[in-house]
């Protein structure tokens, strides 16, 4: 188990390094940097001025070196101007050159400064994660029990008309991306023109105070898309269990059908969906970005869109690191959990 864990974590770190490097490379391409220089100095500067600004701020170094600086394993860039004033990556108004640390990167906890929000990246990311965490908590609370219930109901009698109805229903939900279900829900439940006007079409107020009216639609929109997939996996696992020998034995003993389902089948049928639920996180991240944009809920996904849309390099990097880590860690948990839950799997 330890060796398995170690190799898994090693691969995870390697993957995280590769992915962050790719993001770093893509966000720091020439045209992006030019845009940064122009937004700092004004749009009408000449190419020579752009270049000198980039050189002064360390953007002209090789990209690998700069990645190292950003990560915090290479000493931060410093530049000595003609008048002797030293500027650099780790130097700002509060920490002058004399006391500035040599390394300042993600590993030291220095995530940079957002040019859009004019605040530290770590602060914005933490706030976004907190808000998205609330959203995800409610999504999970709706999605998981709902999906398991549908899956178990469909899977306990394979081929019956209930099975067909519920399977078709889960296909419908997997075929409805968030931006479609969101639009439909807003029209039906929140539109001031034709709808029922029961709920709010915007979740902005939910950032301070969650109520049924302002949070139901975003939660439902995300939960619905993932629900069908988990339900189908649960159904597949349930049908497999229902054909097992020990279920037949229980039936022949005369155990009633609800008892067979509840006491004999359910426990074994719920192993497989666990992994699926964990692997849903990367997909949910997609949904979160769409839903937060649609409902104007300023969480993590909304931050991603703002950072990417406004060429806010450091914020985008911070958001990417967090989202990549979330994906990788959930993958790790799902692997370990599967092994832990399923005694039939032996690790070599």
């Amino acid at each position: 188990m330890l060796r398995f864990l170690a190799s898994r974590i090693l691969t995870m770190i390697l993957t995280a390094l590769c992915l962050t490097f790719i993001v770093f490379f893509l966000t720091n391409l020439g045209p992006n940097l030019e845009k940064v220089a122009k937004s700092e100095l004004g749009a009408r500067i000449t190419d020579a001025e752009v270049e000198s600004w980039l050189t002064r701020n360390g953007y002209m170094q090789p990209v690998v070196l700069r990645y190292g600086e950003w990560l915090g394993v290479v000493p931060g860039f410093t530049h000595e101007a003609d008048d002797g004033a030293v500027t650099g990556r780790c130097i700002d108004a509060e920490t002058p050159a004399e006391v500035a640390p040599t390394f300042c990167g993600v590993l030291q906890g220095d995530w940079g400064y957002s040019t859009v929000f004019r605040r530290d990246v770590s602060e914005i990311v933490a706030r976004g994660l907190g808000l998205t965490g609330k959203l995800m908590f409610w999504v999970m609370l709706v999605m998981v029990p709902g999906a398991l219930l549908i899956g178990v109901l469909a899977g306990m009698r394979e081929g019956s008309r209930t099975d067909r109805t519920l399977s078709t229903l889960s296909i419908v939900t997997t075929a409805t991306p968030e931006y479609v279900s969101g639009v439909v829900f807003i029209t039906v439940f929140a539109s001031s023109a034709v709808g029922l006007k029961w709920l709010n079409g915007s979740a902005t107020s939910a950032m301070d105070d969650i109520t049924f009216a302002n949070f139901t639609l975003p939660v439902l929109t995300i939960a619905l898309y993932g629900m069908g997939y988990i339900a189908r996996m649960t159904r597949a696992s349930m049908t497999e269990v229902m054909t097992a020998q020990y279920i037949r034995t229980a039936r022949l003993k005369g155990v009633s059908f609800p008892n067979i389902v509840m006491k004999h089948a359910l426990r074994n049928a719920l192993i497989a969906p666990f992994t699926v639920i964990m692997l849903q996180f990367p997909w949910l991240l997609n949904g979160v970005v769409i839903v937060e944009t649609l409902f104007n809920y300023k969480g993590f996904g909304w931050t991603l869109v703002e950072a990417a849309g406004n060429n806010d390099i450091e914020l985008l990097l911070g958001v990417s690191v967090v989202s990549v880590l979330v994906v990788l860690i959930t993958q790790l948990i799902s692997d370990i959990g599967y092994v832990y839950l399923n005694p039939r799997i032996r690790i070599s």
Binding site: L19, L26, L29, L304, S320
Partner: peptide, 16 residues
């Protein structure tokens, strides 16, 4: 492992 939307935002921009 790359979030799809992030990839899109990185790839599908005029600068890219």
């Amino acid at each position: 492992a790359f979030p799809v939307i992030l990839l899109f935002y990185l790839l599908v921009t005029p600068e890219m």
